[in-house]
Amino acid sequence: MKQIPNRLKVGVPKTLFASYNLSYWQRFLTLSGMEVVFSGESTKETADRGGRLLPHEFCIPIKIFMGHILDLLDKGVDQILLPRMTDRNKTNFFCPKLIGLPEIVKFSLNLEEKRFFSPEVICNGLNPKVVRFPVTAAASLQQMKRVEKQALKYWEETLDNCRKQQITLPEAALKTSLETSRETALKISPETAGRGKLKQPEHHLCVGLLGYAYSLYDPFINKGIQRKLDKLKIRVYTWEMLEPETIETSLRGLKRPIFWNFGRMLLGAGLHFLKDPAIDGIIYVTTFGCGPDSVAAEILNLEAEKHQKPFLLINLDEHTEDGHLFTRLEAFADMLSTFKEDNAV
């Protein structure tokens, strides 16, 4: 691999928006002729360092995000990818903290505007779309427009893989990156992918696992929830395994749909799981202080009661102790088995 010395080094924090469409951003930046630097994995230290910069009430994902930014600054990147998530789409919003993210980072770290690579982005929950490209010396506007389309195609392929093979996002990203050339290969460790291996063991229970990609697939926050579920022989289904039409259809029954686009996907998937007889129960993973989840999870909780489907809400924070989690999952699995046997008779 030839290194061009004066390529623009752009840092990508591997959390929040990037944990959804990491491959999209990586493609987009590499093909625009920039060098992509990833932040390290989230650790206790990442969360602590980031948390110190923010008011204490902020949700853990944003605190971790700040930690990732600090990590990137330590690595000496020229610019940091920080998409400006706008609300031009009038029925699809980001969480206010994400809308204000560039300003939060800028003012809490006292950085100059030129340290950020900030394309304006809209998103329908699945596909990001850049509506305004930043001016950069690395690539022309035309080139970026062309490259963005390629990146989007690549991302859609990844999502397609998820649906076809019924695998989660990190697994699909790992798979796709193994297939592509080494130059653009994503460096995803097996730990990030959650399970470590793609082979599925025997399962006797099926559970809909809901949660934002940045908390569900971040090994620091999720505390290996997928591995734990595997151990309990529970097969997991997530929102990315569903067709977007399915999600939209199940949302149509609501009087007032959720407008936050990531939450919308989760709620839609959750409502579908409620009606799906193959799914035994739903586990909703949320993080402490998550605003959209306080609404989305409550709606789902009330709906689950109506549908008589077991629903477990797990609220995670920066505690690293995970014994209680396994106990709760185990109890939930026991309940599901009993429930299933009772219903089978």
């Binding site: 009430e57 206010p96 903290k97 939060i104 003012f107 605003g291 306080s294």
Partner: peptide, 28 residues
């Protein structure tokens, strides 16, 4: 506590306070 839009303001307040030379007390 946990208000999403006002948390954005709260995170900008240290910078605002320094730039404007104006004491700002944020109570949650």
């Amino acid at each position: 506590f946990g208000c999403m839009p006002e948390l954005v303001t709260q995170s900008l307040i240290p910078a605002l306070s320094a730039n404007l030379n104006l004491p700002i007390l944020s109570l949650s």
